[in-house]
Design a binder for these strands. Sequence first.
DNA 1: CGTTAGTTTGACCTAATTCAAATACTGTGG
DNA 2: CCACAGTATTTGAATTAGGTCAAACTAACG
Lengths: 216, 216
Amino acid sequence: MPFDMDFVEIQAPALFMGSGPDAGVKIRYARGEEIFGEGEPAEYVYRVLSGAVRTYRILRDGRRQIDEFHFADGFFGLEAGTEHRTTAEAIADSTILVARRITVNDLAAQRGDVARELLKETMDGLQRRQDHVVLLGRKSACERVASLLLDLAVRSGNPRVLDVPMSRQDMADYLGLTIETVSRTLTQLQGDGVIEIMTARRIVLRNRAALEDMVE
Amino acid sequence: MPFDMDFVEIQAPALFMGSGPDAGVKIRYARGEEIFGEGEPAEYVYRVLSGAVRTYRILRDGRRQIDEFHFADGFFGLEAGTEHRTTAEAIADSTILVARRITVNDLAAQRGDVARELLKETMDGLQRRQDHVVLLGRKSACERVASLLLDLAVRSGNPRVLDVPMSRQDMADYLGLTIETVSRTLTQLQGDGVIEIMTARRIVLRNRAALEDMVE
DNA sequence: CGTTAGTTTGACCTAATTCAAATACTGTGG
DNA sequence: CCACAGTATTTGAATTAGGTCAAACTAACG
């Protein structure tokens, strides 16, 4: 389905993992659209060009845990095994660079710089999961929400006015909380003058230092 | 301190990341001994030969989150940046193979198989953190404890009688729980006939199927 | 065989969840 | 441009899983 040619725009001008010869295809996904599903063969690897993506796992009874949010330049879908272990969906309309896994593998085998970039990318992902583990294992609801807000800020160039691309449910499922707790926590942070909720998807960081004091 | 020569036993006969020329030194650490600390320069990478290691982070107020337990063959201490982001301590008396990070880097640059093994190892680590994230974000205390027991079983060749190398506090700090909750949960699992606690460090898995039903 | 650290158990408490309802947004078609 | 429908978010009240504090028990080690 991702390779329905209606969606293909142009051959990517850049090497998937860096600069060099072509090695990917741009595909557009609409808000909510699935990019790959858990259990599917992991034939392709992906990089966000624009938009936002969530990768998540679902437990038998429907509990969802979002593994990661991916924004511009974010790399996802590379697996150790042959199957995807998460489902990936576009959070907003997105353009994604898609490359055959084999192509990337071959390229890495031939070129040291590609292999190194692949390792770097994977290690960065590992680090982010380590931070996520600390957040989920040992932080309070307030600390979790503050961490996410700061992370979103950092990853979008530290604007004072934050564009929140995901829903409260997405935030909750990333933070290991319920939607109600996320909402209440944001309301409370606003009450404390730390943030200002313009709309649900637009939040002003009024007191960044206070947020930073909360995250650890 | 890790390179106090009193501790050095022999030159490792095997390549750090696989088979090949020498690239490591065996070092013994006593139970509780620190291998490296958070914030220290990450000059070396490590592989468990025997024993067990915990890597963890501490928040300002002392909350501890164990990132990972490392058993025989387990690889740890490789960082994306220049500093260790966790502290590593021996859980039991352990023998650790230690190699200069630069050596491993150089080796990976020269040899595709080493680069590939390094990537594989890192991707496996990433996968384990993803599982950990799901556990911490969305599983109940009982499911968490069951998951850990099964993980320990799998990682030690699926014996029916499990040797638990870590303390209840270690379990709690890995599972995002308190020591009391871990203890109560184990007692309850025993009451349900799923496990039998011989001693705190020796647990019989009486009904593996029941445990497996709990983990997801 | 006593000391001490680690573990278990008990009673109570609280942060976060659940269930329920009100409110506010967003996009669509008239 | 406005009204409406449907969805997302916020708020409220009651509940609970897991935490906290405290004490009893157990086992490992010198």
